[in-house]
Design a protein around this nucleic acid. Structure first.
Length: 431
DNA sequence: TACGACACAAATTT
DNA sequence: CAAATTTGTGTCGT
């Protein structure tokens, strides 16, 4: 689909302020706009009308104390595909969606393929082996699904009320130490490996409306896939009993890009904690168990592992509308990496659920998770703040995850200005 | 111990 | 099915 339905509103394309780098950078010291629990509730109800957010998961939003970045939440709105379209966007804000109080909902989906397996409850990979990350995003909450060359929208910086016209969106991937600011380099190889160039994965343009369950590589403009990724370093203390295991996490960021000025990160999501082994599989006693569940489990059961107990991370992050893609992100991540909330995403496009909260490494409550073998959807999930997934969604996309990889889903909620909720799905998915 | 480099082999694609 | 390509991993030196 490349056609837009007529916008239910219009505006004249004039913005209160012209975007510019200065204004963008000037807000980097603003605090994050907290989102009230009430609003969160409201948002959740919007995205999941049938699954009220568990009270226990209503962790207070990030406090602004430690926030170094300004957040100017980003009011993402559609803009007409054609700039000359007349209109007045003061009337556009909430009119076009069935949930007048919330506005559009962005959903960012990401998955990791290849390379990962479970070892002692931890998602694990080898530094030297490839993995790939695919991500899409889309927009819901309006009367139609935006699925085209771009998401017409505006981004408003709350501090200045400045509107920026989003030129396009892009998605980037990076890694860091769980619960720390320390960035971990990712490298991307060509098939020639050592003999080819090594790159650092850069954000790539993406259009809304992709489907992660479809081909993830190719000329699909609606999905970004970073192939042949490797961690540059291994996690510390792998397999040691005494020292605390270090974990990494993959971070996927959605950026709004503008005709001028630096991109602004508008959303982010984080994977479950990962162990990255630095040595050959032969050095690890469990290496032979890597695929031990390859057959059994319930590949047949819809989307095996829904509810599987795979640690997931719920991360609610107010997104900064200020700050550049690099420094701003770093600052932001440094300031609020661990605001994790629980939610039960029930996206119409999600084949996965339930999504367990993964609260805080280095002491994850893994004990509450079932072992690798796909369990029935644990009914006690609600004890961890997540109601059980009442029923597995049908495998609407016809894909069944490999049995030896439980789909891991991490749900992230991003609050845009005025309570726009972005729900992020991040899951491992062995194809 | 971690990691880069080289090499071989298995797996996958063409 | 064979060749080519791509990926996994064993090993060595630093």
């Amino acid at each position: 689909m490349t056609n837009y339905m007529p916008l239910p509103y219009s505006y004249n394309g004039e913005y209160p302020t012209q975007p510019n780098d200065q204004s963008t950078n000037s807000e980097t010291s603003q605090p994050v706009l907290p989102v009230s629990p009430q609003l969160q509730q409201g948002l959740m109800s919007i995205s999941q009308p049938e699954t009220p957010r568990p009270e226990s998961t209503h962790t207070p939003p990030p406090t602004s104390n430690s926030e170094k970045l300004a957040i100017s939440p980003n009011l993402i709105r559609r803009r007409p595909p054609i700039p000359s379209r007349p209109a007045n966007f003061t009337t556009t804000t909430f009119h076009s969606n069935p949930y007048p109080s919330a506005g559009p909902i962005l959903q960012l989906h990401a998955k990791m393929d290849r390379g990962f397996f479970r070892a002692d409850q931890d998602w694990t990979c080898y530094r030297r082996n490839y993995f790939q990350v695919s991500s899409t995003f889309d927009v819901h909450g309006m009367n139609y699904l935006i699925q085209g060359p771009e998401v017409p929208c505006l981004l408003r910086k709350t501090d200045t009320q400045e509107f920026l016209q989003v030129d396009y969106f892009s998605i980037g991937v990076c890694a860091r130490v769980t619960n720390h600011d320390k960035k971990i380099e990712l490298v991307q190889h060509t098939p020639k490996r050592d003999k080819g160039p090594q790159m650092i994965p850069e954000p790539r343009p993406v259009r809304a409306g992709g489907n992660l369950h479809l081909a993830s590589v190719g000329s699909n403009h609606n999905i970004v896939t970073f192939e042949r990724l490797q961690f540059k370093t291994a996690t510390a203390n792998n397999g040691k009993r005494r020292a605390a295991q270090q974990y990494y996490e993959i971070v996927v960021d959605l950026y709004a890009n503008f005709p001028r000025g630096e991109p602004i990160r508008v959303a982010t999501c984080t994977s479950a904690a990962l162990v990255v082994r630095g040595r050959s599989p032969g050095h690890y006693a469990d290496s032979h168990t890597r695929f031990k569940h390859a057959d059994s489990t319930d590949a047949s059961s819809e989307l095996a592992g829904n509810g599987s107990g795979i640690p997931t991370t719920n991360n609610v992050t107010a997104v900064s509308a200020a700050g550049g893609p690099s420094t701003g992100i770093d600052q932001h991540q440094a300031s609020s990496p661990n605001h994790r909330y629980t939610s039960l995403p029930n996206s119409p496009i999600s084949d996965f659920g339930p999504y367990s909260p993964y609260n805080g490494y280095p002491y994850p409550s893994l004990s509450s998770y079932p072992p690798m073998i796909p369990p029935p959807p644990p009914s006690n999930q609600s004890s961890s703040g997540i109601p059980p997934y009442a029923s597995h969604p049908p495998p609407s996309h016809g894909q069944v995850p490999s049995p030896y990889f439980q789909p891991v889903s991490c749900v992230f909620e991003i609050y845009f200005e005025y309570c726009r909720l972005l729900t992020f799905f991040f899951f491992f998915f062995r194809e």
